[in-house]
């Protein structure tokens, strides 16, 4: 059964048609890639999926529920979490607290219980600590739990962002250029982590990426976007050999 179903999605900014008649069909548990030249509208589609922008037309169905018109926080609760192209961490919080902020809606106690330090505060905070450390271990960040997020090296900041998104326990994880700025070794390691996360947490992952090695290495299916429209879609190997796609990337 399809986890995410997008039909006829479109948005204009003034006179610019950023996304037009976009469609997407992602099966549960798949690793799906969204690629395209610069300015093709990939991040705009992420912003549409997460409710940052409201589409002019079209439907987005997540697990049988239409999420068009919902706010970002509601969509996150419905099960979509994301990372950002330009890293957006809580830079003055520790690595552990970044992840615990992601656990906000899943481990809850009231503000009053927090101020008065009632037993529930200690119980839930302990649960949060344990869960956060568990997640950090997956991404090999557990040794840096006390470090300020802004003091992490670049590659680890990217990983921490994924960890934080994972903490919200999503059904669908959107990764916006997870390998940007990483060296080949880090990229390879990241590929393994992404695959590992998908398999252990039974996630569905949609990622935007320019690194073709990563795309061809882990994505099972692809959609190629050009000028806001779907240029090609299907199995990764087929799409990457499509002459139209090669033309869009390399020119005539």
């Amino acid at each position: 059964m399809a986890l995410l179903e997008v039909e006829n999605l479109g948005i204009s900014f003034g006179g610019l048609r950023a996304v037009n008649e976009f469609h997407l069909h992602i099966e549960k548990g798949s690793l799906y890639g969204l690629i395209g030249p610069n300015g093709a509208g990939k991040t705009t589609i992420f912003n549409l999926l997460t409710g940052v922008y409201r589409p002019n037309e079209g439907i987005i169905v997540l697990d049988g529920e239409n999420i068009v018109g919902k706010k970002t926080i509601e969509i996150n609760k419905a099960g979509i979490a994301r990372t950002f192209q330009n890293i957006r961490l809580f830079k003055d919080l520790s690595v552990l607290d970044n992840v615990k902020a992601g656990l906000h809606n899943h481990h809850s106690y009231s503000t009053m219980e927090g101020i008065l330090r009632l037993p529930r505060y200690y119980k839930v905070e302990r649960e949060m600590d344990e869960r956060a450390m568990e997640l950090l271990k997956v991404f090999d960040l557990d040794k840096e739990a006390e470090t300020l997020a802004s003091n992490l090296p670049y590659g680890k900041q990217r990983k921490l962002e994924i960890t934080r998104a994972m903490a919200t326990d999503p059904k669908l994880l959107l990764l916006d250029e997870p390998a940007a700025g990483m060296n080949p070794n880090e990229t390879k390691e990241l590929m393994e982590t992404i695959r590992f996360v998908r398999d252990t947490f039974h996630l569905t992952i949609l990622l935007i990426e320019h690194d073709m090695k990563l795309v061809s290495g882990i994505c099972e299916e692809l959609t190629v976007l050009n000028f806001g429209q779907v240029l090609a879609e299907g199995k990764t190997s087929e799409v990457l050999n499509n002459p139209e796609v090669i033309k869009a990337y390399l020119g005539e």
Binding site: N98, Y109, T111, I115
Partner: peptide, 29 residues
């Protein structure tokens, strides 16, 4: 002090550090 070092305090500080990211993880800004 107890507010700062609790779930709500973490939410408040996450909004301070990055409002867009705070929204994306489901915090009611």
């Amino acid at each position: 002090l107890n507010l700062i070092h609790s779930r709500s305090g973490r939410a408040i500080m996450s909004i301070r550090d990055n409002r867009i990211a705070a929204e994306s993880i489901g915090i009611n800004v």
